[in-house]
Structures are given as structure tokens and as C-alpha cells.
Simulated assay, not measured.
Amino acid sequence: MDRNTLPFLRVAARNRLRERKLRRVLGPDLGRPVSWQATDNPLVGETAAIFESSHDVHKWSQYFEAYDAVLAPLRDRPIRMLEIGVFRGGSLEMWRKYLHSDSLIVGVDIDPGCATFDDPDRNIYVRIGPQQDTAFLRGVIDEFGPFDVILDDGSHVNSHIIDSFTFLFPNALADSGAYMVEDIHANYWWTHADQPATFVDFTTSLIDAMHAHYFSTVGEQLFHAGDTKRETAIQVPFATTIVGKIEFYDSIAVIHRRNRDLPRSIFRA
């Protein structure tokens, strides 16, 4: 068997298993097969309008809803944005048009040719290096961070996405910042499957991390404000204290950073 076909066969087998499990878990009503017809409805939203007037930028139509939801509340002030993946520079121009005029936009890419899009006079900066190289990323953070928004539109390789996130989310993202990972449909394609665990798999661990303070506790009383049995401190992973919200759109995940208080239960008679 050709070694090049092995990743395809592994991912194809994994997807078949996932599909069978999905139908079983969803049950007969939610899991029944239907025909989903293609449509070409007009693009909607402010980012979509800017996209329509831009060049050298490639986006999926469903992304604009996520962009507007995350970025619109930030447009009235200067922010710092890091985008992994520069390609032909079109998305940097798109964010330059959309964000506050004093916002700082940084792109990173492995392609040396992308350095031509570096434009300090317009607060656009490009640095060349691998997205999974933490030493390179540390230099970007020291030079430009912390960032209010980080958007991973880079290699889409499973290990690269996870390695970038596990370093940048705790070290480069400002409190109340948003970390967006797009094109996660590539998680289901063999072309980007360099390891069995996908970023989608990884996010299930983030969901568990959000709730890790319940692992070793039983009962609401341990969180009830004013109760003598209330826990005053619980050992948890660091992620538990800073992952504030996780959102999924089609092919985009958004993980919000927020320094969290240990939850408490409050009763009002």
C-alpha cells in the first residue's frame, strides 16, 4: 500500500465511525438523513460588505456572522489583532478597513514573500515564521502583544492549530480577548491530519476545563454563598480560570478569555 494513502484511509475510517456515532447519539429525529440543498443567498453584514469590495482574500460565506459578532463591539476603539496566515495580504487589508483606524494589525506567515505586505505607516506588520514555533511567537508577543483578537487562518494542520492555541491563548491574549480558529472543516479532511487528535477534539477538553471545579465536588452546597461548607479554594487547571466562553459556528470556533471568579450559588427568598 502506498504510504501516501494511509492518512486518507485513517481519516476516512474515523469519519465513518463519527458519522455512525453521531446518528446514534442524535436519535431517530435529529439524526435522520435529509437532503441539504445548496443556495447562493447574498452575503450579509458589515464584514461581508467590506469583503465584497476587497481583493486577494478568500473566505467562506458563513464566516461573516462570526466576524461581526466578535469584532463589531470592538470597532469603537483601537485594538491589537494578530492573524495567523497572510496569504496574499487581502485579509490584512480587510481588517484595516473594518477596525478602528488606530488599531494595530499583525500578520504572521511561513512564506517569506508575505513580508511585502508589511506596512508600518498604516499600522500593519508582518512577521515571518512557523505558527507552531513558540520561540518565534514569543518574539511577536514581546514586540506587539498582548492582543485583543487572535485569528488562526494558518496551516489548518491539527497539531499546528493546537500548538498555537495552547501557547498564545494564555500568553498573548488580553483579558476579555477572543481567539478565533477558522477553517476547522479541515479537521475532517485527511490533507491536514498529521495526528489523530483534531482541534475539535481538543475543544471538548476545553469544555471540560471550564467545568473542572465540579470534578472533585458533589452538591451545590459547596458553592452556596454564606454556607459554612462552601469551598474557598479548589485546585483546577489554569485554563479553568481563564476560559470564559466557547462558541461554535460552522467551521469557526471562538474561545473567549476572561479571568473568572470561582462560581457561587446564590439563593434569594
Rank of each mutant, 00 (worst) to 15 (best):
F199C: 07
I184M: 14
V218I: 07
W190K: 11
T217D: 02
D201P: 06
F202P: 07
A186N: 12
A193D: 04
Y179M: 02
E220N: 10
I207Y: 15
M210E: 07
Q221V: 06
H185C: 02
D208V: 00
W189N: 14
S205R: 13
T191G: 14
A209Y: 13
V218Q: 14
I207C: 05
A197L: 11
Q221I: 00
A212K: 07
W189L: 09
F215D: 14
S216E: 10
G219M: 01
F202S: 03
A193T: 01
A178T: 09
H213C: 05
A212P: 04
A212R: 14
H192V: 02
P196Y: 08
N187H: 03
A178K: 11
I207G: 09
S205Y: 09
D183I: 00
I207V: 14
T203D: 05
M180S: 06
D208G: 10
Q221R: 14
T198L: 01
D201F: 00
Q221C: 00
F199W: 08
G219H: 02
D201V: 00
F215W: 07
S216M: 01
P196D: 11
S205L: 08
P196N: 12
W189A: 08
Q195H: 10
E220G: 14
D208L: 02
N187C: 10
A197M: 15
G177R: 08
D194T: 09
M180K: 12
S176E: 13
S216R: 12
D183C: 05
A186L: 02
I184A: 04
A197Y: 05
S205K: 15
W189I: 10
G219D: 00
E220T: 11
H192R: 10
T204E: 05
V218P: 02
F215E: 12
W190A: 13
Q221G: 05
T203H: 07
L206Q: 10
A212M: 07
F202W: 14
V181N: 07
W190L: 08
D183V: 02
D201Q: 06
A212T: 02
E182L: 04
D201Y: 00
I184E: 06
H192W: 04
F215G: 06
G177W: 01
Y179T: 02
A209S: 15
T217A: 12
S205P: 01
D194Y: 11
H185R: 11
T217C: 11
Q195T: 10
T204G: 08
L206P: 08
V181Y: 06
A178N: 13
L206T: 01
T203M: 06
E220I: 05
V200I: 10
A186W: 00
H211M: 00
Q195K: 15
S216W: 01
I207W: 11
G219Y: 02
W190P: 06
Y179H: 05
A193V: 04
